[in-house]
Design a protein around this nucleic acid. Structure first.
Lengths: 111, 111
DNA sequence: TTCATTCATCGTAATATTGCAATGAAACAT
DNA sequence: ATGTTTCATTGCAATATTACGATGAATGAA
């Protein structure tokens, strides 16, 4: 099949999975890390920094933009990318709502 | 290709991506949600609850076990699964180390 | 023993992802 | 106008993922 069933699950579950999928590639994580350091950076910087082809970086940036995590503006002949801080907090809370479901009061295993 | 290059990235970046990939399927998120509610539950419950085939659930559980997030013990003829609280905190911190890199002091966009 | 239940694994078809070369489009300089 | 730089898009081959039926191993009941 290769197709994920989404109709069986809640909107929160699907949204969390969708965002996790974007974070599930080390190149995209590295792009985010690089954007943190630079606070804004252009595509060619990333190509030089990550060692992947320009087309590959561009494709990863598109996926980061697709969920609104990264935004880019035209800067003359080049492109300037940065994190969308509003979306960042939103996603952070989405993950925290998962992580905080499991209370850490219970130290022992249940099984 | 279809193969992810990992040699270009740091261990932290690869690890985060690896865990995110496990969370990138809504069925696996739903399994975690269900484990939270029950604190322990068996496979057949999940099959009934999620509406996926038994083989599919079993495969998802294997991936959750592969990263140590879920553990199962034999309970007679059935199986008892639960969250590994130690690994859970570890993964929570792994994600927080990503989310906390971006300070929320800057409200405006950079570009 | 024989049967039913539970769950893992195998095999498979459909689809998705990854990375790249090639090609385009846009902005700018000469 | 011509060339250059920057980045997006397209097309492709290799591989991964997803879901499921079928099968098998293990446990316990009759």
């Amino acid at each position: 099949m290769g197709i994920t069933k989404t109709d069986l699950f809640s909107e929160e579950q699907n949204e969390l999975a969708r965002v996790a999928k974007v974070l599930s590639n080390p190149a995209r994580v590295a792009i985010l890390h690089h954007l943190f350091k630079a606070n804004a950076c252009i595509n060619s910087d990333l190509v030089h920094e990550l060692g992947l082809a320009q087309a590959t970086i561009s494709q990863h940036l598109r996926e980061l933009k697709a969920i609104g995590l990264v935004q880019g503006t035209i800067e003359g002949v080049s492109m300037s990318y940065c994190i969308n801080p509003v979306k960042w907090v939103e996603i952070k809370q989405l993950f925290n709502s998962l992580f905080d479901r499991f209370g850490m009061d219970e130290e022992g295993q249940c099984c």
